[in-house]
């Protein structure tokens, strides 16, 4: 698969629920359609909440990836 290059990377590691989600929403609001936003997080609430938010808000969840000691959530702003 082609490696998607994020427009914006948010390193929210060490921040607690709902911090990473709120940072993602902020980036989403500041961004434009087509942007790819990537969030690094170590918070377990975010792992569930962020993909849920992406789907409910009508955007595209590209994936949730396990990384070394954290996970990465990648979304595309489609609206």
């Amino acid at each position: 698969m082609e490696e998607l290059k994020p427009t914006r990377v948010i390193d929210a590691r060490g921040s607690f629920c709902p911090g990473p989600l709120m940072e993602m929403i902020k980036a989403y609001k500041q961004g434009k359609v087509g942007d790819i936003i990537s969030v690094y997080s170590t918070d377990t609430g975010t792992k569930k909440d962020a993909p849920e938010w992406i789907k409910k808000s009508g955007n595209e969840l590209i994936g949730v990836y396990e990384r070394n000691g954290y996970f990465e959530i990648v979304m595309r702003k489609t609206k």
Binding site: C17, P18, L21, M22, I25, D49, W53, S57
Partner: peptide, 11 residues
Amino acid sequence: SIIASGAVANG
């Protein structure tokens, strides 16, 4: 403040 965050996340 956390509940307020959840509310904002839900628009």
